[in-house]
Design a protein around this nucleic acid. Structure first.
Lengths: 108, 108
DNA sequence: AGGTTTACCTTGACTATCTAGGCTTCGCCG
DNA sequence: CGGCGAAGCCTAGATAGTCAAGGTAAACCT
């Protein structure tokens, strides 16, 4: 409905991927996704923060307080070992499904 | 969690696409998606029928009673003109988003 | 007659997302 | 120095889409 959309169910994957590039705070994760996607994807904060808690509860990511690049107080998230594995799983799952959808669209 | 998954939000697109190949009944639509996706995607009936009603209410598809290929009584769905347009829109949206996600994964 | 397949439908729970707020801290500018 | 806006975090409530798990009916096969 809005100018930008996020495909339901891909948020975790996006977050994991962004965090695989290093520690980052919530706000920054959102910006990063927006940027890397060429401004196509936009993550609302109301989706982002709950997602981060979910993922932390699952042990995929962990957090510590620190500073943002702009010198502000920020909660820095990073991947755990289990999160790294999860990233691989979700990447494969995405590829499988994206390919499958492509096949249906082509009418293979 | 199950052996097969359907990416949330792509069901409408899959249905529209399958119906662009001609009239088909609900049951058959599910089978078709399963088949075309090389058995990767599976649509539960509890998702399929409500989706069909939604889409009929939006005017994208329409239905009439007839017979299935197996000679059974079946409700045959088909695309309306507005549905054909919607299919194009959703196809483009899918491509946009799939590409964007690919970019994030690549870390472009 | 009974079981299996085809086909349709519904209800209730769950989960993810969005909307729409609110909070604090900090830097900048008038 | 006072205020405003940006950076950053958080939450409550509504909504929507999916799934699990049922149930119904007709036709076919044996």
């Amino acid at each position: 409905m809005a100018k930008t959309e996020l495909l339901s169910g891909t948020l975790d994957l996006m977050i994991l991927r962004v965090l695989s590039g290093g520690k980052l705070h919530g706000f920054g994760i959102g910006e990063r996704i927006h940027l890397l996607s060429q401004e196509v994807l936009e993550v609302e904060e109301g989706s982002l923060y709950p997602a981060l808690y979910r993922m932390e509860a699952k042990g995929w990511i962990s957090a510590e307080w620190g500073q943002s690049e702009k010198g502000r107080k920020a909660k820095l998230y990073f991947l755990t070992r289990s999160g790294t594995k999860q990233l691989e799983n979700e990447k494969q799952a995405w590829n499988r499904v994206a390919l499958a959808i492509g096949n249906v669209l082509k009418g293979a």
